[in-house]
Amino acid sequence: MGDTRPVYQRIADDLRRQIDEGVLPVGARIPSRSELKRVYGASDQTVDRAVRVLKAAGYAVGRFGRGVFVGDRKPIGSLVRGSVAVDSPLAAEIRGGPRGTVRGGSVPLPGPVGRRPGHLPTALARPPVAEGDVAEGFGLLPVPRGEASAERVPHLVWEATSTATVAPPAVAERLGITTGERVMCTRYEYLADRLPLQLATSWEPLALTGETDICWPERGPYARRGVRGRFAAIGIRVVRAREVVASRPATSPEAEVLGCAPGQCLTTVERTHYAADGRPVETSDSVLRGDRWRLEYDIPLAPEPVAPPPSVGAPTVRGPRPAERLAGLPRPTTRRAPTGGDEPAGSVSR
């Protein structure tokens, strides 16, 4: 039976094989449209579609005015998620990244007023919030103390924009509120060594935070404290978080920011924080390139249960002793051999 794959798929698969085998190394130029037409005997539309397949899978990247080149698909590192990770929208510890290891989290950094890392907007105690109000935050994620000084760590930069808006249906369901209720929506963009790392969007019900000092996540006296630290300031104890991991194609705006092709596979993480009484207080969506970053989970295991000692007076169950095991077996019979002596019945004389 002949190959039933469409021609564009056969071209894409052959180019992908050459990339995987190193015939076309990272950074090499993919043959031009005219070259692909000549080699595969295909039309313009067919070879263009094959190249789009490679771009969507992360095998190729286009450079305006220069052509299409083999992309670097080697994973940059892992985002380790778990109880040790700070509950910021990054919610992870970077391991094996561009420059080593750093935990997601931040503290206010001094800096001149202006749109640059380290700047904190003016704190506003108990701010009035109107729909459409916007606040911005910028910062660095510093290296935690105790890390080995010789270990090169990623230079992590983030930018955030908060807007008072209404909850869309999916977000309202996750927060346990009514569609259209007011929420604080904060959008984050993370860079690791100037490379796109992660996009995140967080929502918090303004019914809980609207007239408090924690209304703006990246502004005010409790900015950058994480979900637990900020909500603790208003008497709400956050005790657990739930994550749902999935994947989906990248939208055009996401692809432009993350440096990939529209339609390329992204890893998505839906994270929701819950208070001690079980109500959700914050939920977020994070997206990152599935071909460059891996999610790693540290799952502590409970100690193995220890068998309880037998109660006093309870009968002890034991296995049979060797003699008792043999007692139930039939004993071999004997017969008199012609030459004398006993020989087990059923044996054959030589």
Rank of each mutant, 00 (worst) to 15 (best):
M1N: 11
R5W: 02
I11A: 12
R17S: 13
G22H: 11
I30A: 10
K37R: 15
K37C: 12
R38H: 12
R38D: 14
V39K: 12
A42G: 09
A42H: 01
Q45S: 14
T46P: 11
V51C: 09
A56R: 14
A56V: 03
A56W: 00
G67L: 03
S78G: 02
V80I: 06
V80K: 07
S83N: 03
P89N: 11
A92Y: 03
A92M: 03
I94T: 07
R103D: 06
S106P: 00
P108S: 11
R116N: 01
T122H: 13
A123N: 11
A125S: 08
V129W: 07
G132D: 06
D133Q: 13
E147I: 07
E147F: 12
A148T: 02
A148K: 11
V153T: 14
T165L: 05
A170I: 05
A172V: 04
E173L: 06
L175N: 01
I177S: 09
L191H: 08
D193K: 10
S202G: 09
L208Q: 00
D213L: 05
I214V: 15
W216H: 07
R219D: 10
Y222A: 15
A223M: 09
V227C: 04
R228K: 09
F231Q: 01
G235F: 06
A241R: 05
A241S: 15
R242E: 08
A250R: 06
P253V: 03
A255W: 01
A261R: 04
P262Q: 09
P280R: 01
T283K: 04
D285S: 12
G290S: 15
W293F: 13
E296F: 14
P300M: 04
V312S: 07
A314M: 07
R318V: 06
G319T: 13
R325A: 14
G341D: 06
E343T: 09
S347F: 01
